[in-house]
């Protein structure tokens, strides 16, 4: 287990203030790519746990993530952005060293 879920760049959660007056809503989308107004984490039933001690940082998990939810941490190793990961398991299937295991969500 590689620690608690994190939200790391290039992704950021940008909570959206839900206005009650229709006129207060902007006419166009206001949050650019890389910002989420509501977390995708709720889609997930399994969490990709990475055994980082044996990871050589090949980056295949970053390449194959359809959601861009796998990011490099400060040590050049992969880390999962919790609000972005939908728990599909592609990273676990494609890890050449089988270091990623899909398991029950870590409790905070």
């Amino acid at each position: 287990m590689s620690g608690a879920p994190v939200t790391a760049p290039p992704c950021a959660l940008r909570p959206f203030a839900r206005e009650t007056q229709l006129a207060a809503w902007p006419a166009t989308p206001q949050a650019d790519a890389g910002q989420l107004v509501a977390s995708n984490g709720g889609w997930r039933s399994l969490w990709p746990a990475i055994a980082l001690d044996a990871c050589n940082g090949c980056g295949l998990c970053l390449l194959f993530c359809p959601d861009g939810a796998m990011v490099w941490n400060a040590h050049g190793l992969p880390e999962v952005a919790a609000d972005w990961c939908k728990g599909c398991g592609l990273c676990a299937r494609e890890c050449p060293k089988d270091l990623i295991v899909m398991q029950a969500e870590p409790t905070p």
Binding site: C11, A31, A33, N40, W43, C88, G89
Partner: peptide, 8 residues
């Protein structure tokens, strides 16, 4: 990123 595509 940040799309609402299905998992996988």
């Amino acid at each position: 990123v940040g799309h609402k595509g299905c998992s996988g």
